[in-house]
Amino acid sequence: MKGKVVSYLAAKKYGFIQGDDGESYFLHFSELLDKKDEGKLVKGSMVHFDPTPTPKGLAAKAISLPLE
């Protein structure tokens, strides 16, 4: 699924993505496929991810940034 980063707290390594389906997904650095892309996780960045339901809500897994 595609989505847009709505927040990312680099110090805490987490944030949120708004998916194309309108839902909010929890984003964690550990799910970023290329850790070098962390600096690109800023508000408004477009990402691809696997939407995954968890006991705490919806989460983004296997997060990647589109090729530039």
Rank of each mutant, 00 (worst) to 15 (best):
G3L: 01
T54V: 06
G44L: 03
Q18N: 08
E68N: 13
A10H: 12
G57A: 03
I17T: 01
E68G: 13
G15F: 02
L27G: 02
D37K: 06
L32M: 05
V5W: 01
D21L: 03
G15C: 03
D34T: 05
Q18R: 14
K35V: 08
Y25N: 01
A10E: 09
E68F: 12
S64N: 08
G44Y: 05
K36C: 11
P55I: 10
S45Y: 07
A10T: 11
Y25R: 00
G3D: 00
G22F: 05
E38G: 05
F26N: 01
P51T: 06
I63V: 13
P55K: 11
E68P: 12
V42Q: 11
P55W: 09
T54E: 05
Y25F: 03
E31S: 08
P66K: 13
G15W: 03
K35A: 10
H48F: 14
L27W: 04
G57C: 04
A60D: 02
L65K: 04
G44K: 03
D20P: 06
Y25H: 01
S30D: 10
V6S: 10
E38S: 07
P53V: 14
K56W: 14
P53R: 14
K43L: 08
Y8N: 02
D34L: 06
L33F: 05
L67V: 13
E38W: 07
L67P: 13
F26R: 03
V47L: 06
A60P: 01
F49I: 00
P53S: 14
Y25G: 01
Y14A: 04
M1P: 03
K2A: 11
G3S: 02
S45M: 15
H48D: 06
K36T: 12
K13Y: 04
L58W: 13
V6R: 12
S24Y: 14
Y14M: 07
T52H: 14
S7M: 15
F49S: 00
Y8K: 02
K36D: 12
G39W: 14
V5H: 01
K12A: 08
D20G: 05
E68H: 12
P51K: 07
Y14K: 04
V6F: 07
D20R: 06
G22K: 05
D21I: 02
G57W: 03
S64M: 11
E68S: 13
L41M: 05
V42W: 10
Y14L: 04
E23I: 11
S64H: 14
G44Q: 04
G3K: 00
S45H: 09
F29C: 06
E31R: 04
Y14N: 03
L58G: 05
V6N: 06
P66G: 14
F29E: 04
E23C: 13
I63W: 02
V47D: 01
M1N: 05
L65W: 06
L41C: 03
K61I: 10
L58M: 11
S30A: 09
E38T: 05
A60Y: 01
K35C: 07
K4R: 14
D34A: 06
A59Y: 12
A62M: 10
P66L: 15
A10P: 14
A59F: 10
K40Q: 07
L41P: 02
D21K: 03
K13L: 04
V6T: 12
G44I: 02
L67R: 13
I63P: 02
G57K: 03
D34H: 09
L67S: 13
D34K: 06
E38Y: 05
Y25D: 00
K35Y: 08
T54R: 06
K35Q: 09
L9P: 02
L41W: 01
E68W: 12
G19N: 03
Y8T: 02
V5T: 03
L9R: 12
S24N: 12
G15E: 00
Y25A: 00
F29R: 09
M1T: 06
G57N: 03
H48W: 14
G44W: 05
E38Q: 06
D37Y: 07
L32N: 01
G39F: 13
P53G: 08
F16D: 02
S7Y: 15
S45P: 06
F16I: 08
V47P: 00
I63E: 02
L33V: 13
K13W: 04
D20S: 10
S45F: 07
P51Y: 07
